Simulated scan of single mutants.
Amino acid sequence: MSYCLIIDDSRVIRKVSREIAEGLSFRVAEAENGEVGLQACRAEMPDVILLDWNMPVMDGYSFLKHLRATPEGQTPKVVFCTTENDIDYITRALDAGADEYIMKPFDRDILAAKFQELGVLPVSHSA
């Protein structure tokens, strides 16, 4: 079963994201900031990461830079899910190694489409 890690400081966003990802047949773990997310990646590298930008302790951009610098850190697909819609944020995220960038609020269809484009959507849910 594919593994999705959700890194967001909002409990509500984590809950909604978890429900969507589990509905798409992902095994899901959650982290409330980038530091906890890195610990989760050290324990088990996910197939895909949903990543918020603005978080306390360690933000999403710093998390991504740290992740991509680790030996296995190129493996997971990283989707930034954020309210930051300025082109500078998007460019920085993609330059740092993000695979996709979606705006909050998002829904199941948007997430499923992005996962399918990235090749991480489990077969049973491919369109």
Results as ranks from 00 to 15, higher is better:
Leu50Arg: 07
Ala40Leu: 03
Arg92Met: 15
Asp88Val: 10
Ala29Phe: 06
Val12Ile: 04
Asn54Gly: 08
Ala98Lys: 08
Met58Phe: 11
Val78Ser: 05
Leu67Ser: 06
Cys4Leu: 15
Tyr101Gly: 05
Ala98Leu: 08
Ile110Leu: 15
Asp107Phe: 07
Gly23Ile: 13
Ile87Asp: 08
Glu72Val: 00
Val16Pro: 02
Cys81Ile: 12
Ala29Asp: 13
Pro105Trp: 13
Lys65Thr: 07
Gly60Ile: 06
Ser126Tyr: 04
Thr82Arg: 13
Leu111Pro: 06
Leu64Tyr: 02
Ser126Gly: 12
Leu121Glu: 05
Ala113Thr: 10
Pro56Gln: 11
Pro56Glu: 07
Met55His: 08
Gly37Tyr: 01
Ile49Trp: 07
Phe80Pro: 09
Ser62Met: 08
Cys81Gln: 03
Arg42Val: 13
Ala21Thr: 04
His66Asp: 10
Asp52Met: 03
Ser126Asn: 13
Pro71Ser: 09
Ile90Met: 07
Tyr61His: 06
Asn54Gln: 13
Ala96Tyr: 14
Gly37Arg: 01
Met58Lys: 10
Gly37Ile: 00
Phe63Ile: 05
Asp99Gln: 10
Arg18Asp: 01
Ser2Tyr: 12
Tyr101Val: 08
Ala112Met: 04
Gln74Asp: 03
Glu19Arg: 12
Gln39Ile: 05
Asp109Lys: 15
Ser17Cys: 04
Val28Asp: 06
Trp53Met: 15
Lys114Met: 11
Ile87Ser: 04
Arg11Phe: 01
Asp8Ile: 02
Ser17Tyr: 00
Leu94Ser: 09
Glu35Ile: 05
Lys15Cys: 01
Glu72Met: 02
Ala43Pro: 05
Gly60Leu: 00
Ile20Gln: 11
Lys65Met: 05
Asp47Thr: 06
Leu94Arg: 15
Ile6Glu: 00
Ile7Glu: 03
Asp88Leu: 11
Asp99Lys: 05
Ile87Cys: 00
Val79Asn: 04
Gly37Glu: 04
Ala113Arg: 15
Leu51Arg: 10
Pro76Lys: 05
Arg92Glu: 15
Gly97Phe: 00
Glu72Phe: 08
Asp47Met: 12
Glu35Met: 10
Met103Gln: 09
Glu100Tyr: 14
Val12Gln: 14
Ile90Ala: 00
Ala112Asn: 01
Val28Asn: 03
Ala69Tyr: 04
Leu121Ser: 00
Ala93Met: 01
Thr75Ala: 11
Glu30Ser: 10
Ile49Lys: 02
Pro71Gln: 07
Ala98Glu: 02
Trp53Lys: 02
Thr75Cys: 04
Val48Glu: 14
His66Phe: 00
Ala29Asn: 08
Asp8Phe: 14
Asn33Trp: 13
Ala98Gln: 10
Thr91Ala: 12
Lys114Tyr: 06
Val36Ala: 15
Tyr101Gln: 02
Ala21Asn: 07
Glu100Arg: 14
Ala29Leu: 03
Cys41Gly: 07
Ser2His: 10
Thr83Cys: 04
Ala40Asn: 07
Tyr89Leu: 02
Glu44Asp: 05
Asn33His: 15
Ala127Leu: 09
Asp107Glu: 14
Ser25Thr: 03
Val57His: 14
Met55Gly: 01
Ile7Phe: 01
Gln39Glu: 14
Glu19Ile: 08
Phe63Leu: 01
Ala40Thr: 06
Leu51Phe: 09
Ala96Gly: 07
Glu30His: 11
Ala40Lys: 09
Phe63Val: 00
Thr82Ile: 00
Pro56Met: 11
Met1Ala: 14
Pro122Phe: 11
Phe115Pro: 10
Leu121Lys: 05
Tyr61Asn: 03
Gly73Gln: 05
Ala98Pro: 08
Gly60Gln: 10
Lys65Ser: 04
